[in-house]
Simulated scan of single mutants.
Amino acid sequence: MSLLKIHNLSKSFDNGKTKVLDTVSFELEKGRVLTIVGESGSGKTTLIRLIAGLETPDDGIVELNDTILSSVDIMVRAEKRNVGLVFQDYALFPHMTVQENIMYGIHKQHDKKERVAEVLELVGLSGFESRYPHQLSGGQQQRVALARALAPRPEVLILDEPFSNLDVILKDQLRREIFEIIHKTGVTAIFVTHDTDDALSVSDSIIVLQKGKMIQNATAFELFNAPKTPYVASLFSAVVNFTTKELEEFRYPASESTSYMLRTSSFRIEEDTDYSVTARVLSVLFMGAYYQISVETPQGNLYTICSSNDYQNKNITIGFNQPDIFHFECQIN
């Protein structure tokens, strides 16, 4: 059964001149993790602000636990929604201790100190109650922000770009730890990110927004292997946009009314494939876990391929198999 229901949610600014969210609808089941991805300006932040009650919709409904929180006629205040927020910049009060920061979000519970101790143990920061934010590392501040959001026992937890201010090594570790905590608590979560690696690794489902519209809502596996649009395909890894002439060189039966894409990771070297062509190796870069190989075909087409082998100064066969190529019908204006 769905905990959160979003019906035809729309929002515009500048007296209706700028439409940032356009009739978005989806449902989220209790205990699931939904990730929202899209480029800057796609409407991600506006969508979560509408869910949290920080913006009012122009049209549509936000419903939580069969209770309408937002509509054209109804607007439940943010503090009454039981929706937790973890912001990109953590939003900790610098003049308050860790304990005071966490207690700030607890309104109705009598045993506040006991609850603070519970959530600090949950996030691995027991004993940090008396420290101030400036005495914590970035990762520790993020855990305190998570503890503060979890302390009131929200029905939905929203994480808005929570790892964007962290370095890569710390981000990967903290992402793993934070989502282990989220799964342990069983809280329903909405995770907003522009990093598709984050989305693929933690999500039960992913929504892709583009220019305010929901383009696709599916599992990570479905989005990666069966994208509905070229934009969705390009979000999740490097791709090649083939022209019809390029595909003819591979002996692929291409149509002028269709556009074709292939993930660069789907190229095969020196293997028996459905479609192939010979190519000359131009350069090889050692990238640690793989080699990045630049090649040129007899017709002068250039491709970059990743491989576990070094093909320096060789002529090679490159190819791909039928199931690996994406094809999209061209839109006619």
Rank of each mutant, 00 (worst) to 15 (best):
R81P: 01
K171E: 00
K245Y: 12
A145S: 11
S40G: 11
T258Q: 15
E155S: 15
K80A: 10
S164R: 01
A78D: 04
T273D: 07
K11N: 02
T97F: 10
E161Q: 07
L92S: 03
T67H: 10
Q109P: 09
E29D: 15
P298I: 14
A117I: 11
P152S: 13
G105W: 15
F320Y: 06
I293Y: 03
Q331D: 10
S2H: 05
Q210C: 12
S237Q: 15
T196N: 09
N101A: 07
K314Q: 13
L157E: 00
I74H: 11
G124I: 11
N15Q: 11
G288V: 09
R153P: 12
P57D: 04
V62Q: 02
L50C: 01
T317N: 09
V116W: 08
S265K: 11
R32I: 07
G186M: 14
N217H: 14
H327G: 14
Y290M: 10
Y252D: 10
D22W: 11
L50V: 02
A220P: 08
G31T: 12
A238Q: 14
Y104A: 13
H327R: 15
K113I: 10
R131T: 07
R148F: 07
T46A: 00
E63M: 10
Q173N: 12
S40K: 11
D204Q: 08
N225V: 09
S205A: 07
L85N: 01
L69N: 04
K113W: 11
V168K: 05
Y231N: 13
P154L: 15
Q142N: 09
Q173T: 14
